[in-house]
C-alpha cells in the first residue's frame, strides 16, 4: 500500500506543490491548513509521515509535532518541519519538540522527494 503523508501548511500554493510532488511519486497525501486541523486528521491514524510548516495560525508546526509525539499512535512516526529559517535555534526547537528533521525552504520537488525518501 502506498505510504500516507500528512502535509500541513497554511499556504494553499505550498500545499499544492507538496501534493503534486508527492502524489506524482506515488504517495497518498492528506492535507491540513493548520495544526488544529492536522491534529484532528491525524487522530484517525494511518499516517506514515508528517510534513509540517512552522508558522501557521491557530496552532504552529512546533506545537503540532509536540502534540503528536505525545500520542501513542505517533510515537514512532517520522515528522519533518518545513522551515525558511536556517537558524540553528529553530531547528533545535523542532528537535526538542520531537521532529525527526527538517527541510529548508525554498526546496524543489526533487529535494522534497529525496528528503522524504530518507525517512519512509
Amino acid at each position: 500500500m502506498a505510504k500516507s503523508i500528512l502535509a500541513v501548511d497554511d499556504s494553499a500554493s505550498m500545499r499544492q506543490m507538496v501534493l503534486l510532488t508527492l502524489q506524482g511519486a506515488g504517495y497518498t497525501v492528506l492535507q491540513a491548513c493548520d495544526g488544529v486541523e492536522a491534529l484532528e486528521l491525524a487522530r484517525a491514524g494511518g499516517v506514515d509521515l508528517v510534513l509540517t510548516d512552522v508558522h501557521m495560525p491557530r496552532m504552529d508546526g512546533i506545537t503540532l509535532v509536540r502534540e503528536l509525539r505525545n500520542l501513542p499512535l505517533y510515537k514512532y512516526v517520522p515528522m519533518l518541519i518545513l522551515t525558511t529559517e536556517s537558524s540553528q535555534e529553530r531547528k533545535m526547537e523542532g528537535k526538542r519538540a520531537g521532529a525527526t528533521g527538517w527541510i529548508v525552504k525554498p526546496f524543489n520537488p526533487p529535494q522534497l522527494l529525496a528528503t522524504v525518501a530518507r525517512v519512509i
Binding site: 497554511d10 500554493s13 505550498m14 506543490m17 501557521m56 525558511t84 526546496f107
Partner: peptide, 12 residues
C-alpha cells in the same frame, strides 16, 4: 505569518 508565507512561496 502573512509576510513569512509570501516570502516562502516566492522563493519556492
Amino acid at each position: 505569518r502573512a509576510a513569512h508565507s509570501i516570502k516562502g512561496g516566492a522563493a519556492t
